[in-house]
Simulated scan of single mutants.
Amino acid sequence: MPQSAQPNTQQAALWNDASGKAWVEMQPILDGVLAPFERLVVDAGYPGEGSNVLDIGCGAGATTLAMARRIGDGGRCVGLDISQPLVTLAAERARADKVANASFEVGDAQAYAFESGHFDAVVSRFGVMFFEDPVAAFTNIRQAARRGGKLAFVAWRSPVENDFMTTAARAAAPFLPPAPAPDPEAPGQFAFADGARVKRILEASGWSSIKVEQVDVQCRITEANLMKYATRLGPVGAALREVDQATAEKIITVLPAAFAPFVVAGEARFNAACWLATALA
């Protein structure tokens, strides 16, 4: 599948450098936290044994590998991600786990020159909220699916509904320069917070039988891994890579107390508020 011009240059730079490297480092922890969504997406998008499936924003490959196992040796699951470090790790995992019907490619789904009508299903676990032009992206993705092919993805709902995900940023805010109010529709973790907007995007890009359903999933992370999670990822992880040592120490000091309300019996437990979007090509 040849590659055409890339529109999402800022995201490419981010995920091929600091963010991508952080996700590589955190892969075992993140796969544990997000495991319930892996099962959710595979169940919703499963097109049958022996099918061809595309995983958008595959990251380190957990969902791709799970779907490849589910569809069996007669099918193939292709993981696509803009991050070379994550794709490299995903391919290494497929080899190590001997999942021969999973493969991985570096690319931007908004501009990728897919073979038309090749895939029986397209899935994504939190990989579709980062496009500069989501209508163009989902139009291109639809053309990769056969007529009647499935689409199934999960995306985060609002920051207000995901207080665990914003705890570190709120705790760190007093020690950082004031930040402008974010554009709620800008590419990023919460770009699909508005479920009505998600439906409009899918309608405008030609999908049918669209459903955008609320899903609340209970997630957990061990207390031993919690501070690593809080300081490596997201806006706080990015800030800690830039601030001076004194400021970094102040932020790191306040984080345990900020997360304390979530900790029970040695692990942080939290509700993950998401959308499960499904449609047909």
Rank of each mutant, 00 (worst) to 15 (best):
A186H: 12
S208R: 15
R220Q: 15
C219S: 12
A239K: 05
K199L: 05
R232E: 12
A239N: 10
A191M: 05
G195S: 06
L176W: 07
G237F: 00
K199F: 00
E185K: 14
A204H: 13
F192P: 00
G149D: 05
A224P: 03
M165G: 12
A248N: 03
T167D: 02
K199G: 09
A204W: 02
E242W: 11
V236S: 10
V215D: 03
C219Y: 07
P180S: 00
M227Q: 01
A230M: 01
Q245N: 11
A224M: 08
A230K: 04
G195C: 00
P187Y: 10
D244L: 11
W207G: 02
R170C: 05
R232S: 13
C219Q: 13
R157E: 12
V243L: 12
M165T: 11
P177H: 09
A173D: 07
I210D: 02
R232Q: 13
T167E: 07
A238L: 13
A169E: 13
L176M: 08
E161K: 08
L202Q: 01
M165W: 12
P187E: 13
Q218K: 14
F192S: 12
T231R: 03
V212K: 02
E185A: 15
A239M: 07
F190T: 11
A246G: 07
M165A: 15
N225K: 14
M227N: 02
F192I: 06
T166S: 13
A196K: 14
F190Q: 12
P178S: 07
R197G: 01
M227T: 00
L151M: 10
L226D: 03
K228A: 10
G234N: 08
P182V: 09
S158F: 01
A172P: 05
A196I: 12
V217I: 15
E185N: 14
T231M: 10
D244Y: 13
